[in-house]
């Protein structure tokens, strides 16, 4: 029986400090109230049946003090919690990206290099990892207690989560949002590996990178006949689209991120590019979420813009591997104490 859960990410350590602060005040006020009630109950116990204690109507000073002091403490809690949350919602740009699909009752992961896993996730120590997640069916929630991290995985949209693991080991992965009969079995393991072991694992046989698999799908679904051939005029050419602004018919513009590409495949009429008619059929129900991620990875590989231009906190580019820079030079993690 462990009383303190393992701390295995940089964020988890920050979380622990914050939680300690919160629980210091919880303990403090609990003790104050318990001692107050206990002390008064003993000291002012009824000694004879005809006692008539002098009425006290109240105290404005006391009301002000016990309104303002807790309010100030609560605001300090809010500020720290919000700062932590901003970090949680802001993945660094040099993060290794992994793509997660939740499905009753399994977790699928795919690495940009093409490796696929079920109910397992392999990541290296010391590098920021960004997960881009979606669901094939109902809402799930990706929860790794040793990282103190969780985020709901929602059908029809991409959510992200990121962490820098600090301690090699095998850790629980849970689904935290109730998702049906076998909710409690929808879990697995996160393997945090030393970088060398991770590189070795990563080189183990995959059937081509995500982008390459996406390229095959692109041909298989007949996308290539319009979107890459010379028939300009009927369909927008997808070279250098990802990560850039796209002008829509009607005058609005949108950044061509993963969410936009996904929507354009499933519901082409939603946002039509300026100068084109919507003649594309919908692929709703024909492409799995995993295949969509591969298609997006391929479209991203056609663009030099990468994930630039994608707002922080949103699901950004799909399927590219950033240069292998160590976590310490990342601006967000610079100078952060590393978990021993």
């Amino acid at each position: 029986m462990k009383w303190f859960p393992t701390v295995a990410s940089e964020w988890a350590l920050q979380w622990e400090y914050h939680n300690l602060y919160l629980h210091f005040w919880i303990a403090f006020f609990t003790v104050v109230i318990f001692l107050g009630v206990f002390w008064f109950a003993v000291k002012y116990r009824r000694r004879s049946e005809d006692e008539q204690p002098r009425p006290i109507l109240g105290s404005n000073i006391a009301e002000i003090v016990w309104t303002l002091v807790p309010l100030l403490i609560a605001m300090s809690m809010f500020a720290w919690g919000a700062a932590l949350y901003f970090e949680y919602a802001s993945p660094p740009e040099n993060a290794i990206e992994v793509y997660i699909t939740g499905k009753q009752w399994m977790w699928y992961a795919q690495h940009p290099e093409g490796q696929r896993e079920i109910n397992e996730l392999h990541v290296p120590v010391g590098r920021p990892i960004k997960l881009t997640m979606t669901s094939e069916d109902v809402i799930h929630s990706f929860f790794v207690p040793v990282f103190r991290l969780k985020r709901d995985v929602i059908p029809g949209r991409y959510t992200t989560i990121w962490f820098t693991a600090t301690k090699a080991g095998r850790y629980h992965l849970f689904c935290a949002e109730y998702c049906g009969a076998q909710h409690s079995r929808m879990g697995g393991w996160v393997y945090v590996m030393e970088p060398a072991a991770y590189e070795e694992w990563l080189s183990g046989g995959a059937a081509g990178s995500m982008a390459a698999q996406g390229e095959k799908l692109f041909a298989q679904f007949g996308c290539a006949s319009c979107h890459l051939s010379g028939q300009q005029g009927r369909c927008p050419n997808l070279t250098n689209v990802f990560g850039n602004r796209v002008e829509l018919s009607g005058g609005a513009t949108v950044v061509a991120d993963a969410t936009y590409i996904r929507e354009s495949i499933l519901n082409p009429a939603a946002k039509v590019v300026a100068g084109f008619q919507n003649i594309m059929p919908s692929f709703q129900g024909q492409v799995s979420e995993q295949n969509l991620l591969q298609l997006i990875a391929f479209i991203r590989s056609l663009s030099s813009a990468g994930s630039l231009g994608v707002p922080a906190g949103e699901a950004g580019g799909i399927g590219q591997r950033p240069p292998a820079t160590p976590a310490r030079v990342d601006r967000r993690t610079q100078g952060r104490p590393r978990q021993p």
Partner: peptide
């Protein structure tokens, strides 16, 4: 009074955006 105090105060980690990421669900 005692139990409501504990119940109320333990709502604070759930009100904190950061702490709730772990405690939620």
């Amino acid at each position: 009074i005692g139990l409501f105090t504990i119940g109320g105060l333990t709502g604070l980690p759930l009100a904190s955006l950061g702490a709730d990421v772990h405690f939620s669900d």
